[in-house]
Design a protein around this nucleic acid. Structure first.
Lengths: 137, 137
DNA sequence: TAGTAAGTGCAATGGAAGTGCATTTGTTAT
DNA sequence: ATAACAAATGCACTTCCATTGCACTTACTA
C-alpha cells in the first residue's frame, strides 16, 4: 500500500500540501467531480491552482477526464487497475439524470465496437445515462 | 421523396428561407457540424437565428445533437430511418482525431450495455475515436 | 546558502451557450 | 386585400467554464 506521497513521487510530481489535499478529496469522493466541486471544497485556494493541479494529475495519469454530456468536464481518480493512458479511458461511465452524478464503472469493460472499412478505432467514449443505484432505490 | 418544404410542414415547422438554407447546408454536409460551422457558412445571418433554428430542428427531431467529446456540441440531420427521439440517438458516432470531423455511423447500432444492479440505463452515448476513412486512406 | 525550477495567486481573456426585447415577416380571419 | 396576431429574426447583452500571462512564493539542487 503506497502512501500518496510515494505515488506522486513515483510519477515525478512534486509533493505539495495542495496536491495532497486535492488527491485526498478525489479519493474520498466516489464519483467524478467538476472543477467547481473542488473549488467549493477548497474555498481558500485559487481556482487556477486547482485547475493546474488537475491538469498535472491528468498528464501524469493520476486522474482521468470524463465528458458525461453535461457540458462540464469532470475528473475522477484512476483506479489501481486502471490502465487508461492520457487519451484513453477504457471503462465506461454512468451519468445519473436525477442526481447528476457521474460514476466510473471500472469493472465494466467496453465491448468491442465494429466500425466500417477504412475507419480505425483508437479509443471509445461510452457514457450510459439513467438512474443510479442511490436514486433508483 | 418529400421536398424539404413538405418535411418541415409535416413537423409543424414554418417554412422560411433561412430554414431551408440551413437544412440544405446540413444535408450537403456528410458530417456533424458545429454552430460555428453554420455561422461561417451564413455570415450574413445572425448567430441567434442559426442557434434557434437548430434548436427548433432539434425539438422537432430533424437534427440530433452529438457530444463527441470535443466540448463543442455538433448537429447532424436525422436520417430517414433514424428513430432517435429528442433525448436518444440510437446510433453511434465516429470522431476523427486527425481531421476533427464527426460522422454518424447510422447503421451501426449500439450494443446492449450491462450496468450493475440498481442502475437503470435510459440511453447511451457512444463515440468511437480514431482515424476516419478519408484520413486513413 | 545561493540559484534555479516549479508551484501558486491574481487578473484578465476567450469561446460557446443562452436570454430579453424590438423589429420584421408570415399566417389567418374578416 | 388587409388588419390583427403569432412566429421568426436581429441586436445587444449576460453567464459560465476553460485557459493564459505575469508576478510572487515555495521547494529542490549544486
Amino acid at each position: 500500500m503506497k502512501t500518496i506521497e510515494q505515488l506522486l513521487e513515483s510519477k515525478n510530481i512534486r509533493v505539495t500540501a495542495m496536491r495532497l489535499l486535492i488527491y485526498k478529496f478525489l479519493a474520498k469522493k466516489k464519483v467524478a467531480v467538476t472543477l467547481s466541486d473542488i473549488e467549493n471544497a477548497f474555498a481558500k485556494a485559487d481556482r487556477t491552482t486547482l485547475y493546474r493541479t488537475i491538469k498535472t494529475f491528468e498528464e501524469k495519469v493520476i486522474v482521468h477526464q470524463i465528458d458525461d454530456g453535461t457540458g462540464i468536464t469532470k475528473y475522477a481518480l484512476c483506479e489501481e487497475g486502471c490502465n487508461c493512458d492520457i487519451k484513453n479511458d477504457l471503462h465506461l461511465h454512468f451519468h445519473c439524470n436525477n442526481c447528476n452524478e457521474t460514476t466510473c464503472l471500472t469493472d465494466h469493460k467496453i465491448p468491442q465496437i465494429k466500425v466500417p472499412d477504412g475507419f480505425v478505432s483508437e479509443n471509445v467514449n461510452l457514457v450510459v445515462k439513467g438512474i443510479c443505484d442511490k436514486c433508483s432505490g
